[in-house]
Design a binder for these strands. Sequence first.
DNA 1: CCACCGATTGACTGGTCAGTCAACCAACCT
DNA 2: AGGTTGGTTGACTGACCAGTCAATCGGTGG
Lengths: 203, 203
Amino acid sequence: MASTPKAPPIDKRRQILDAAIRVFARQGFHATRVADIADEAGVAYGLVYHYFKSKDEVLNELFSERWSLLLTAIEEADSSGDLSPRAKLEAVAGFIVDSYRHDPELMKVIIVEVTRAANSFGRTHLPEIRSAYDSIAKIVSDGQAQGAFRGDIDPTFASMSFYGAIEQLLSGWIFELIPAGDGDFDEAKSLVVAAICDGLEPR
Amino acid sequence: MASTPKAPPIDKRRQILDAAIRVFARQGFHATRVADIADEAGVAYGLVYHYFKSKDEVLNELFSERWSLLLTAIEEADSSGDLSPRAKLEAVAGFIVDSYRHDPELMKVIIVEVTRAANSFGRTHLPEIRSAYDSIAKIVSDGQAQGAFRGDIDPTFASMSFYGAIEQLLSGWIFELIPAGDGDFDEAKSLVVAAICDGLEPR
DNA sequence: CCACCGATTGACTGGTCAGTCAACCAACCT
DNA sequence: AGGTTGGTTGACTGACCAGTCAATCGGTGG
């Protein structure tokens, strides 16, 4: 046969990554032993080291996989010339919220262990994280240039506030500080953008 | 003498706490060994355990000391009947920003190791953290009742967004993503409130 | 001068785990 | 069958470090 004669029946590497998501989400990165990942994946201890250089690399891989999707999504929203600046922000907020809806465990790991852990893992990924802020700032900046946003708020500032607000909402869901039903997700998307664009005060 | 005849010349306990702030800020909680704290404090290893039950307790103490000040500040802002809701939010934002200006290392530790590490230490302190969100939500809720804020945004929601935005700014300073001069701090105070209250779109 | 007691010291222990490695196995080729 | 390759196994080791504890110090009162 010409096709895939040597591919193993199941992708063990993927299996390990998926298991890691579950275990990291459940116990946190520091509290999980490599043996936990192997057990959860139904695989021998040593195999984890066959596919990954270290425990850290497993987390790095999970983060990078997902974050690159986010960066792409932001770029795409931005480059849709026919979208209003506000609609672009809505697209970004929507993507992040949907990421959480679709795979809460993965997003929990990424936010808790990387994005908000800038001392340990965040350090390594600071450039990638910063890149997201920058892209959002560009959306704001363009919005200002075309008069859709007021000009007296620094774009970087606005970008940090916007992203910070969204991440805080995810944290609220992750730690069950606020209700996380399907309706809440949709509501959240528009409310964050409304809060940031329209403000809390009545118009 | 009637006064303090038995007090040791210097408060070693305080000395250890202050040293811990520096070391935690520099290396992160997980990466610092108890010996590092003792060395930094110029004190023997065992003395740390004379004053604290465990390494965790040192961090807990640092957090609780500071967080109770924050809670008090929010309560005070809220109970000043003569302040507008917006002015109350300004007071809260101002307190947090000034806390960072006054003791960036301590705030770094609190944010990075506790507030944003809800998986490990944040878990323990979730009730205290939540209490801050609730108090801010109350300010928003009262503002809505008196017509100063629009009524269609859930107060908890607004509170999380507001706090999230501020915390993200602190993170930006902590990890040098945004400039942290004296003018930047003052600017930040008003800009966060402006962004949240007035919104990004022109009025 | 001695007895007492809390503060202070730092060597030591027990347990934990990340990462290594030599052996094993299964598929495929010749 | 014999050989080669690469995935797979799990026991083992070496390092690390939180927390313990017995010894020492220094001040106070009898």
